[in-house]
């Protein structure tokens, strides 16, 4: 089994499982984010953020989540380095084979998404957790971090909105290949189900990206 985890196929298996886990996390995150613009007040969003920050089960899952991110990133970098080393001399005329466009740029989109993630963690997660300089708001006689106002302040800045949208478009590129690729790595390839998985991947990607992008646009123009 130890050989399995260091083998090429084993590493891809870990990449795919971690990736699919992050795919489900994105859905949860989007759901909470949307509560900010769907409701009239910031209360549901702030309460959801509070729940995510204090609930015991969620806190335990947080370690799984960071683990998933770390595994996906570390294994991704290791795989990429090995892949570069596998072709020490490059071709003069680069590859013109028909492949999915996005599959060629997974490491590039990944690097930018990581940069986004670091900024994102400093802006919200770490601020709320450690720095404490988040305004407080009182609901039903209880103090809550007003993360909602932080989000709205951020999204009132044009360049933040542009950067945010650009990052999510790159995430969409990453997902367009990653979602269906994960199933292939797991050995799931079937005449009927593979086209279905690919379709679900495209629908998921468009829906999630559109959802995340809609929030800053709404905040910037209509809030």
């Amino acid at each position: 089994m130890s050989n399995f985890l260091t083998s090429s196929i084993g590493k891809k298996l870990i990449m795919s499982l971690a990736g699919l886990f992050l795919v489900t996390f994105l859905l949860v995150h989007l759901g909470i984010n949307l509560s900010l613009i769907i409701a009239d007040s910031r209360e549901p969003f702030n309460k959801a953020a509070h729940f995510m920050g204090t609930n015991v089960i969620v806190k335990a899952l947080e370690f799984v989540l960071f683990g998933g991110f770390l595994l996906h990133m570390i294994y991704g970098v290791v795989l990429q380095l090995q892949n570069w080393f596998a072709r020490p001399t490059r071709y003069k005329k680069e590859n013109y084979s028909q492949t999915s466009f996005f599959s060629k740029f997974m490491i590039h989109t990944a690097v930018i998404i990581t940069v986004f993630l670091v900024i994102h963690l400093f802006d919200f997660y770490l601020k709320a957790k450690f720095f404490g300089d988040v305004p407080l708001v009182v609901y039903d006689g209880k103090d809550y971090h007003d993360l909602g106002i932080l989000v709205i302040e951020k999204f009132k800045l044009g360049w933040v909105v542009v950067f945010y949208i650009a990052c999510f478009l790159l995430l969409a590129f990453h997902l367009l290949h990653g979602f269906q690729s994960a199933f292939q790595s797991l050995g799931i390839n079937h005449k009927t189900y593979t086209p279905l998985i690919k379709a679900i991947g495209v629908i998921y990607t468009i829906a999630v990206t559109a959802g995340f992008i809609f929030i800053p646009v709404y905040v910037y123009f209509w809030m």
Partner: peptide, 29 residues
């Protein structure tokens, strides 16, 4: 020292015998 498969599908596009990457999924299984 061969590289790792990232499911780009270039191999099946160029294979002179048109071998499908569904075999790669079988190898994974």
């Amino acid at each position: 020292g061969f590289g790792n498969c990232t499911n780009t599908g270039a191999c099946e596009a160029e294979c002179p015998k048109n071998i499908s990457i569904s075999h790669i999924a079988r190898l994974n299984r």
